[in-house]
Computed example of a mutant assay.
Amino acid sequence: MAKNMNSVGLFLAISLIGCLITLSHQETAPCALKKYNTGLVCVCNSHYCDYLDDPTPSEEFVFAAVSSSKAGLRFATTHGQFNLYKKYYIFDHDQLLGRSMQAPAGGSAQIEVDREKRWQKTQGFTGSISDSIEHILQNFPKTLQKHIYQSFFTELGIGVDFMRNLGSGVGEHYLKNSNAIFGSWERGEQFAHALLQNLEKDPNERINCNTLLDQEHGDAPMIANTTNHNEVYKQPLFYTMGHFTKFIAGGSVRIAADNKNPDVDALAFLKPDNSVVVVILNRNSFSVDVGIQDTYRGAVLFKIPPKSIHTVLYV
């Protein structure tokens, strides 16, 4: 396929011509948000838990962008096409349409994706269940235990590979001896930033952390309510982790994703099925215009909200 070499010109053209409003939505079952003074969590119980089908498109020049944010997006999905000379607005959970469009972006980033520049293959991501977690689970209804398992270790969930007795990893560094902070976006963001940096150096970087703990024994992607044994809470960390584990399959190859904005992190992978995954983390406290220029597919431009992470999927 011919490569599109006029990346800068195309990016500027998209920036100047029009906009495209697309409302994000959950593909399968949306998060049931619960607000704490320290942030937002998603509640799972015996009757309900949020899930997401993999929205990777099969058609060329079509993309799906999966988004999570501090304000409350949790795997919200936006669909669109490359090369429409439009800007896709990813609206935050607490944003009004008019206010979102009027507010100027505080910066911009252009990500140059080149699947011909390749590094090592990944081996996938693993998570651990300890004896203490199994003891916690014994006190919960069987249907909720099933939701917990499915949320981590199936395709409907975030697709973590199960393994015991892991060595050190990214999660251990940030969560060891940490008290649970309900809804802490900062902790999830720190985890994602560290993982992006480490994956750039070593695509076989491990995610090693307990999948589930109670609120008295440390932080984890999911916190169990051991007072009523009827609810568990998915932390922002669960979703920032899922932006990697759900969409970057074992055997994926890291490919070039050049980006000169130091406050917008980006990494790209080519999966075994030849689809592309681009993970983008906006650590700024303001919206940012982000353009993806792919040597095979052309260009697409987004306006992404502050404090947010996005996984862009296309073939």
Rank of each mutant, 00 (worst) to 15 (best):
N4S: 13
N6H: 06
V8C: 06
F11Q: 13
L12K: 07
I14R: 05
I14K: 09
S15M: 09
I17V: 15
I17L: 02
C19E: 09
L20I: 04
I21C: 02
T22M: 13
Q26I: 02
E27I: 05
T28Q: 02
A32V: 04
A32N: 00
K34H: 03
Y36E: 00
T38Y: 00
G39I: 00
V41N: 05
N45K: 08
D50W: 04
Y51C: 00
Y51G: 01
F63V: 08
S69R: 14
K70Q: 13
L73H: 12
F75E: 07
A76E: 11
G80N: 00
F82T: 00
K87W: 04
Y88C: 08
D92K: 04
D92L: 02
D92T: 10
Q95G: 05
Q95W: 08
L97A: 15
G98Q: 10
A103P: 15
P104N: 08
P104Q: 11
A105W: 09
S108L: 14
I111S: 07
E112Q: 14
R115L: 12
W119D: 13
T122Q: 05
T126E: 14
I129F: 14
D131I: 14
D131F: 05
S132P: 10
H135P: 06
I136Y: 13
Q145K: 06
I148E: 02
E155C: 07
E155N: 02
L156P: 05
G157R: 03
D161Y: 13
F162M: 12
G167T: 09
G167N: 07
S168L: 04
G171P: 15
G171H: 11
Y174Q: 15
Y174S: 01
K176E: 15
S178V: 13
S178Q: 07
A180Y: 09
W185E: 04
R187C: 02
F191P: 11
A192F: 10
A192M: 11
H193E: 09
N198H: 13
D202M: 05
E205R: 10
R206Q: 10
N210R: 11
T211W: 07
L212K: 00
L213H: 07
D214G: 13
D214L: 10
A220Q: 13
A224E: 07
V232S: 01
M241K: 15
T245F: 03
K246S: 00
I248P: 11
I248V: 05
A249L: 10
G250S: 03
S252W: 12
V253E: 01
I255L: 01
A256P: 11
D258K: 11
K260H: 03
N261H: 09
D265C: 04
D265I: 07
L267E: 08
F269Y: 09
N274W: 14
N274A: 12
S275R: 12
V277T: 08
V278H: 01
L281H: 10
V288G: 08
D289M: 03
T295N: 11
Y296C: 08
G298K: 06
I304T: 06
I304G: 03
P305M: 07
